[in-house]
């Protein structure tokens, strides 16, 4: 039997007041996909992300994760989440890299239960995967933007997630670090993790992703290679 889509939006409508932001969005993300969602400012990318995270409710339509309606979805440990880097916050938060990555195992460890060696080993494994194991005792406030995002990817992966959601992961980090992060995500995707990423940076990530969805005028369309090249050319001209 075919596996259900990892993520599916079906006739998704969302309104802010009278304004329709999403007017019947449909898409499917299949296991093994690396999908980038692009679109201009205000097109509704962040709203779509918040709907997927169940932080907002759609006016109508539905979202399905691993074939299950989001309203009843209980398999959150199967989802990893990396948000936009927020140096203003992390620069003052007194925590080590290990403490931050470990935090994503807390729900699996359970309330009132202590952290054990096996959990620390998982953390080290996740940090190795993103090339940050040598910095496990470093404070997150001492990391560069690129390093911090690698740590956040390790935090998402440590619980063995099958779907990785990324919200503008390279915003605020330099070009070299962004390229290196995309390479890492590409490797993680090849290892079997499905990735769904909202980004402005379509020019740089295009060569790593398997599909590009464009959110415009309340609907979503998949760009084929020709359309993508045109889109990139337009972006290049506007720079």
């Amino acid at each position: 039997m075919d596996k259900p889509p990892v993520l599916e939006a079906s006739f998704l409508f969302f309104k802010y007041g009278d304004e329709t932001l999403l007017g019947g969005v449909n898409f499917k993300v299949m296991p093994g996909d690396f999908v980038a969602v692009t679109g201009s400012n205000g097109a509704g990318k962040s709203t779509l992300f918040r709907l997927i995270l169940n932080e907002l409710s759609p006016a109508s339509g539905g979202i399905f994760l691993f074939g299950e309606d989001l309203k009843h979805f209980k398999g959150w440990p199967r989802i990893g989440y990396v948000q936009q880097a927020n140096p203003a916050y992390t620069s003052s938060f007194p925590a080590t890299v290990e403490e931050v990555v470990l935090s994503n195992l807390y729900s699996r460890i359970g309330l009132f239960r202590p952290v054990r060696k096996v959990h620390r080993k998982s953390v080290l494994g996740a940090l190795r995967l993103v090339g940050m194991s040598q910095l496990k005792n470093r404070m997150i406030s001492e990391l560069s933007g690129g390093q911090l995002q690698r740590v956040m990817v390790a935090r998402a992966l440590v619980s063995g997630c099958e779907l990785l959601l990324l919200d503008e992961p390279v915003t605020g980090i330099d070009a070299e670090a962004a390229e290196s992060l995309y390479e890492l995500l590409h490797k993680i995707n090849r290892d079997g993790v499905t990735i769904f990423m909202v980004t402005h940076d379509i020019g740089r990530c295009a060569k790593y992703v398997s599909r590009v969805l464009c959110l415009e005028d309340g609907t979503i369309v998949e760009l084929n290679r020709e359309q993508l090249e045109r889109e990139l050319l337009n972006k290049h001209r506007h720079r």
């Binding site: 959150w76 931050v100 935090s103």
Partner: peptide, 19 residues
């Protein structure tokens, strides 16, 4: 540990299953 995670990142804590 739960208080730490909620202080660090409430959204991620919720998604990971922390009550």
């Amino acid at each position: 540990k739960e208080l730490f995670y909620v202080a660090l990142d409430e959204s991620s804590a919720r998604i990971s299953g922390v009550p």
